Amino acid sequence: MEFVKVSLNSFLEYLQIEKNYSQYTVDCYEKDIESFISFLEAEQIQNLQDVTYADARLFLTRLYEKSYSKKSMSRKISCLRSFYRYLYREQIVVENPFALVSLPKKDQYTPRFLYAEELMKLFELNDLTTPLGQRNQALLELMYATGIRVSECAAIQLSDIDFSLQTLLVHGKGKKQRYVPFGKYAKDSLHTYIQNGRVQLKSKSATNTNALFLNNRGTTLTDRGIRLVIEKLMNKTAENIHISPHVLRHTFATHLLNEGADLRTVQELLGHENLSTTQIYTHVTKDRLKTVYMNHHPRA
């Protein structure tokens, strides 16, 4: 299986160098392909070129048996399809056994979002007299104001923020960049954190960093660290409010559409490559459309 792992490493380098994929995406590809390699070992298949369409179908069956979600199975199959496409290009295999494997039909998915009153309760949780409280407030305000992904939030540098124009330079998937505006609440909380809380946090470390969000040791707050911050805030709420960085992103998009923003604008702000990805938010705006219709149609 040694050559299999060499091929995997070569593919991961291709994703980083030629495709400009983020480290997080590359790590996800690596995990998915390693699970497939474990499957090959269990089935005593020694070479990548020996994998057939029947083996690919069997792998999908194994995923079903392990109760993987349809989304996870689709991701794994898409990953392996790309892997074999690369192997075919490099003439390591003569066919792609995953080319004809059908992806499971996706479940209908309605994004979870927060209502205005739930958001207000979140914004009232932080102790703004402490460095971590100021950081958490700035984190919440900025994520809700811009709808950025957690990986994009962790990557923000001080130089990415333009306070005069109230815009944020976001480093998105595939190293694509976009500018996203933010409002007064985010601006004020960022000012407070940068001028006070961040200074105190940075003094705890000898490492010089320009990252916007720092942890309690004064070093860069990671993706996982941001998730933990949000999780702790959720546990502080007296009511059963489920929040995550992605729920804040969903809330950003839903509130914009509810207030009349067009889908193309929301697509650009979210950094979605395809409009179909943004269209999932139209499901949660039906109540608003009904209200507008009832209030304005002459024969409603």
Results as ranks from 00 to 15, higher is better:
residue 127 D to V: 09
residue 173 K to A: 06
residue 181 P to Q: 08
residue 165 L to W: 09
residue 186 A to Q: 09
residue 137 Q to A: 04
residue 123 F to R: 00
residue 158 L to F: 06
residue 172 G to I: 14
residue 194 I to Q: 07
residue 183 G to L: 13
residue 187 K to T: 11
residue 156 I to K: 07
residue 160 D to I: 04
residue 141 E to Y: 04
residue 164 S to I: 15
residue 163 F to N: 11
residue 205 S to E: 04
residue 148 I to S: 04
residue 137 Q to I: 00
residue 158 L to P: 07
residue 148 I to K: 01
residue 124 E to K: 11
residue 130 T to D: 04
residue 134 Q to E: 14
residue 139 L to D: 11
residue 125 L to T: 05
residue 193 Y to T: 03
residue 201 L to V: 10
residue 134 Q to P: 03
residue 180 V to Y: 02
residue 132 L to H: 01
residue 151 S to R: 04
residue 200 Q to Y: 05
residue 123 F to P: 01
residue 177 Q to E: 15
residue 178 R to E: 10
residue 131 P to M: 02
residue 197 G to S: 09
residue 161 I to E: 10
residue 149 R to A: 08
residue 184 K to Y: 12
residue 162 D to M: 09
residue 144 Y to G: 07
residue 121 K to F: 03
residue 159 S to K: 15
residue 175 K to I: 00
residue 202 K to A: 15
residue 150 V to W: 11
residue 176 K to N: 06
residue 136 N to S: 13
residue 143 M to N: 13
residue 195 Q to W: 01
residue 181 P to D: 08
residue 155 A to C: 01
residue 120 M to Y: 08
residue 189 S to G: 14
residue 156 I to L: 15
residue 176 K to P: 01
residue 136 N to W: 07
residue 195 Q to T: 12
residue 192 T to C: 09
residue 149 R to V: 10
residue 189 S to H: 08
residue 164 S to P: 04
residue 128 L to M: 04
residue 136 N to R: 03
residue 198 R to T: 04
residue 201 L to S: 10
residue 180 V to L: 03
residue 194 I to S: 04
residue 175 K to H: 12
residue 149 R to M: 07
residue 191 H to R: 07
residue 204 K to L: 15
residue 200 Q to S: 08
residue 122 L to E: 01
residue 165 L to N: 15
residue 167 T to A: 12
residue 183 G to T: 13
residue 188 D to H: 07
residue 192 T to F: 01
residue 130 T to Q: 10
residue 177 Q to S: 12
residue 143 M to C: 13
residue 132 L to D: 05
residue 121 K to L: 09
residue 169 L to I: 10
residue 176 K to I: 00
residue 148 I to E: 03
residue 202 K to I: 03
residue 186 A to W: 05
residue 156 I to E: 10
residue 150 V to M: 13
residue 129 T to V: 00
residue 132 L to R: 04
residue 124 E to D: 14
residue 138 A to P: 05
residue 147 G to F: 12
residue 191 H to F: 07
residue 132 L to E: 12
residue 128 L to Y: 00
residue 143 M to W: 13
residue 206 A to Y: 08
residue 156 I to H: 08
residue 134 Q to A: 02
residue 123 F to T: 00
residue 126 N to D: 10
residue 169 L to S: 14
residue 200 Q to I: 05
residue 137 Q to G: 00
residue 160 D to V: 06
residue 204 K to M: 12
residue 182 F to H: 05
residue 152 E to C: 12
residue 194 I to L: 14
residue 191 H to N: 07
residue 153 C to D: 06
residue 180 V to T: 06
residue 147 G to N: 09
residue 156 I to N: 08
residue 179 Y to K: 12
residue 138 A to C: 11
residue 125 L to G: 02
residue 154 A to Q: 07
residue 122 L to C: 03
residue 165 L to R: 15
residue 179 Y to D: 02
residue 175 K to S: 15
residue 161 I to Q: 08
residue 149 R to W: 11
residue 161 I to N: 05
residue 175 K to R: 15
residue 146 T to Q: 11
residue 125 L to I: 10
residue 162 D to T: 10
residue 127 D to A: 13
residue 140 L to K: 02
residue 203 S to V: 01
residue 175 K to C: 08
residue 140 L to W: 04
residue 155 A to W: 00
residue 146 T to G: 13
residue 168 L to P: 10
residue 198 R to L: 03
residue 167 T to E: 14
residue 181 P to F: 05
residue 144 Y to T: 05
residue 146 T to E: 11
residue 201 L to R: 09
